[in-house]
Design a protein around this nucleic acid. Structure first.
Length: 462
RNA sequence: UCCCGGGUAGCUCAGUUGGCAGAGCAGGUGGCUGUUAACCACCCUGUCGGGGGUUCGAGUCCCUCCCCGGGAGCCA
């Protein structure tokens, strides 16, 4: 008999059929004459209730079917006479693959704190909460591809190991095969990376953007979706040392096109997740009361507010709120400022554009005013910055001047300048932190709870 | 990295003025013919984060280190 996933079992047309499911026991409720087992297999938020009569041989095996054990059950699907579930399976046979000793299995029938579950990353996907989060994560990931593929973007694979360390995007992890006990030194006493594997110092990528640019300047519209690494000592609920980033890049596009793309993208993802993740969203809402399917459906229909950095500063200066950090033109927006704008003023997603050039990266296109750059940040309530993007500087002379001003060495970036020498054109793109998106959609407050194996300072246990 | 708050049973947490280390849940045993984080009865559960100090006596006070959480900065 073919094994079915629980998500496929629970339907009217299976009533009366003899079926076969595999899964892990969530709870066991025993009486004298019968017992109930609730199993899940990860395919859906729903569980399947198994009814085992004391006449079936399986009843004698129930002492081995404790919470956490892996079993296969064969039986008849039928409508459940009791409240709480529509269907149940009357079991004729149970095969026990692996027991879970109740005294030592860490997951109980009762709820656990997210902090405790973080200590058992290998078992937490078996819980309702993490099952929901990781299924939603999958819906979002596949929807990312669906969005870009349907619009003619090519998925490109930018390198994970890179030699470019000059993007100013943060501290990097060094990749080396040198003997750390006895590394070669040069005359100055520094480690001699010319003797390292690549003949020079290499790092884990902090962004695929620069490479995405040259692919956009040949393939037209591209996007990356891959792991990204930052070695900052950040201990917050919205930073990881290893995270997944999505970076579309478009040739023949300006900041307006970029803003439009980011908005369409975000709204598309909100819509998809309400369509495909209804059960998961409903569970998380009932459990945590942070965001609902209705909220996301509304977001999918809502245009983003637009405001320039200069207007944002005016708005903040006019605020009755007292901020910890002073508001002044030229200073970056602090978390509290962003939160005021999204949560209090706009009450929804917001795109802030045209930041002062001093607080943004060298590759962002200089505006005609000479003071600001064609940058945009998409801010959402609670999570804050979720997308950062810009129109790229396509003018060779302006870019060279900006690199000189900001102290970016040219040696390793000749290829990047070449793109401005040969067939340069306006182009734009953005980066979206995938985990922050998952955080927003699930309502999880800590980013470490939306990725299976979080990497953060002193955190690499699984 | 900085600022707060924590660390007591497998889990969640209480522990008063320094004076016998507790509760609920989980687990075990028994009961129960439709349970739903089942229910009822009984039983079991400790390196009070580590080290040092004060004291007749420290979970409690002091010093120190480690770990966890929240906030800030950095950013996506």
């Amino acid at each position: 008999m073919e094994r079915l996933l629980i998500k496929d079992v629970l339907s009217e047309e299976n009533i009366g059929k003899s079926l076969n499911v595999c899964g892990w026991v969530r709870t066991k409720r025993e009486s004298k004459g019968f017992a109930f087992l609730v199993v899940s297999d990860g395919s859906t938020q729903d569980t399947l209730q198994l009814l085992i009569n004391n006449e079936t041989p399986a009843f004698q095996e129930l002492y081995r079917c404790n919470t956490g054990s892996a079993i296969q059950a064969t039986g008849l699907l039928r409508e459940s006479p009791a409240k709480g579930q529509k269907f149940e399976m009357e079991v004729s046979e149970i095969i026990i693959f692996g027991e879970a000793e109740p005294e030592t299995y860490p997951l109980q029938k009762k709820g656990h704190t997210l902090e405790f579950l973080r200590e058992i990353s290998h078992l937490r996907p078996r819980t309702n909460t993490f099952g929901a989060v990781f299924r939603l994560r999958n819906i979002l990931a596949s929807s990312v591809h669906e969005f870009f593929q349907s619009r003619g973007f090519l998925w490109i694979h930018t390198p994970i190991i890179t030699a470019s360390d000059c993007e100013g995007a943060g501290d990097l992890f060094t990749v080396t095969s040198l003997d750390l006990h006895n590394p070669p030194k040069n005359d100055g006493g520094d480690i001699d990376f010319s003797q390292d594997f690549f003949g020079r110092r290499a790092y884990l990528t902090v962004s695929g953007q620069l490479e995405a640019e040259f692919l956009a300047m040949s393939l037209g519209k591209v996007y990356t979706f891959g792991p990204t690494f930052r070695a900052e000592n950040s201990n917050t609920t919205r930073h990881l040392s290893e995270f997944w980033m999505i970076e579309p890049e478009m040739a023949f596009a300006d900041l307006r096109d970029d803003m439009k793309l980011s908005e369409d993208f975000f709204r598309f993802l909100c819509r998809k997740v309400t369509e495909k993740g209804e059960k998961e969203l409903a569970f998380l809402e009932s459990q945590y009361k942070r965001i609902s399917c209705e909220d996301l459906a509304r977001l999918a229909e809502t245009s983003f507010a637009h405001i320039s950095y200069t207007e944002a500063i005016k708005e903040l200066k006019a605020a009755k709120e007292s901020f910890e950090f002073p508001v002044s033109w030229g200073a970056d927006l602090q978390s509290e400022h962003e939160r005021y704008l999204t949560d209090k003023v706009i009450k929804g997603p917001l795109i802030v554009t045209d930041y002062p050039k001093e607080i943004k990266a060298f590759y962002m296109r200089l505006n005609p005013d000479g003071e600001t750059v064609a940058a945009m940040d998409v801010l959402v309530p609670k999570v804050g910055e979720i997308i950062g993007g810009s129109q790229r500087e396509e003018r060779l002379d302006v870019l060279e001047k900006r690199m000189k001003q900001t102290g970016i060495p040219r040696e390793n970036l000749q290829w990047y300048l070449d793109l401005r020498r040969f067939g340069s054109a306006p182009h734009a793109g953005f980066g979206l932190g995938f985990e922050r998106l998952v955080q927003y959609v699930t309502g999880m407050l800590n980013i470490r709870d939306v990725i299976p194996c979080p990497r953060a300072p002193r955190t690499i246990g699984f």
